[in-house]
Amino acid sequence: MSGLTPSAALREYAFWLERQLADTYRVRAFREAAAVADALTETPKNEAEWKALKGFGPKTAAIAAAAAEGRLHESLAKRRAEGAVSLDPAGDDLRALLRGDLHSHTIWSDGGSPLAEMADVAEALGHEYLAITDHSPRLKVARGLSRERLVAQWEEIDQVQQGRGMRILKGIEVDILAEGALDQADDLLDRLDIVTASVHSDLNADAATMTRRMVGAVSNPHTTVLGHPTGRKLRPDGSWRAQSSFDAELVFAACAMFGVAVEINSRPERKDPPLDLLLVAKEAGCLFSIDSDAHAPGQLDFLTYGAARAVEAGIDPERIITTWPLGRLLEHAKRRR
């Protein structure tokens, strides 16, 4: 017996696909089918009836029908077996010490799933807290949140929080603007639990310009985390998008001075910052934050990748703020406000 409802089976299949960075449209079919299954008042009697439902195809119908019969479909069983293997065993011990994640995205900006679904999976993974950090207004390509939409998101967070043991933190991934200012009003930033500041534009600017921008953001009293510092990204052909040039010693010295954590971005196509810069940040005395930068629920499990990179760099877990209890984390985030 599988013990799964049809919707739970479909969502689990989507989770394993997301964990493997499968195409968003392919994943969406399973999550949308799960939503249809949740809304049914009568369970279809066989696979053909499942397939006749709007939003269902051969694979989704087969998985749902098997779950309705108390069976685990072979394709889901295969995904589950593959998922039982750690993403990176070198990170397993440190991953067990991580209490939460300070960088995640939902359908409010460029994520693929609703806020509640992200929270459900984070809680199932054992998170004590999850920061929702959708993008800020200037990043229109990622549907950055205006002032009004950010406040509206807080209302949804309050609703989704009800009845949960895990804390959903109100956050933002705020763009670092040309002169180092943050792309959101100070009064809103002051009300957030977590502010992750990242550069998303003009990544090829000269080193002096990038250094000035990053130090400006790090010195802002609202900034909690410096997100994916180099902006590098793995292309489909296996080559890397060039990382930004900046004075790493100066930027990381500023992070250490102001208590801003350097993000160890766990996405496998980012691995940002690379090892050489991680070691510079470590030598500078920086704090760190191991974050998933998840854009889908299954990607929340990417933390193991980041943990493995922290282990490789020899970073003391005590210097990783995502190993801290919630109270200590929040006190630190508001230390200069």
Rank of each mutant, 00 (worst) to 15 (best):
81 A>N: 12
67 A>K: 00
93 D>F: 11
92 D>R: 11
49 E>W: 09
83 G>S: 03
17 L>R: 07
96 A>D: 04
111 G>D: 04
18 E>W: 15
111 G>M: 03
86 S>N: 03
88 D>M: 04
41 T>F: 10
30 F>V: 03
43 T>M: 13
37 A>G: 09
53 L>H: 12
46 N>V: 06
22 A>D: 04
84 A>D: 07
70 G>E: 00
113 S>F: 15
65 A>Y: 03
29 A>W: 06
93 D>I: 11
24 T>Q: 08
99 R>D: 01
99 R>I: 02
106 T>P: 01
45 K>F: 10
33 A>E: 00
104 S>T: 08
54 K>S: 10
61 A>N: 12
106 T>I: 08
104 S>W: 02
20 Q>S: 09
51 K>P: 10
34 A>V: 01
77 A>R: 14
69 E>D: 07
91 G>L: 00
57 G>E: 05
85 V>Q: 11
80 R>D: 03
81 A>Y: 04
32 E>A: 15
46 N>K: 07
38 D>M: 12
57 G>K: 02
20 Q>I: 08
40 L>E: 04
76 L>F: 03
75 S>E: 08
24 T>E: 05
72 L>I: 10
102 L>M: 03
25 Y>N: 13
39 A>R: 15
19 R>Q: 11
76 L>A: 01
34 A>I: 01
78 K>N: 10
67 A>Y: 00
88 D>H: 01
62 A>K: 07
53 L>I: 02
108 W>C: 07
74 E>S: 15
28 R>L: 12
26 R>E: 12
76 L>Y: 00
46 N>F: 07
107 I>W: 11
64 A>H: 02
30 F>L: 12
92 D>Q: 14
20 Q>W: 09
62 A>M: 06
60 T>P: 07
113 S>L: 14
41 T>C: 05
27 V>E: 09
98 L>Y: 00
51 K>F: 09
18 E>M: 06
101 D>P: 08
97 L>P: 06
25 Y>Q: 08
44 P>S: 08
18 E>I: 13
30 F>T: 02
97 L>C: 08
108 W>P: 02
92 D>G: 09
47 E>F: 05
36 V>N: 04
93 D>Y: 14
79 R>Q: 14
70 G>M: 01
23 D>P: 13
102 L>P: 00
36 V>Q: 08
51 K>Q: 14
43 T>A: 12
61 A>V: 00
79 R>D: 04
81 A>R: 08
48 A>N: 06
111 G>Y: 00
84 A>L: 06
56 F>W: 03
56 F>A: 05
87 L>M: 09
51 K>C: 04
49 E>I: 07
103 H>N: 10
29 A>V: 13
79 R>K: 15
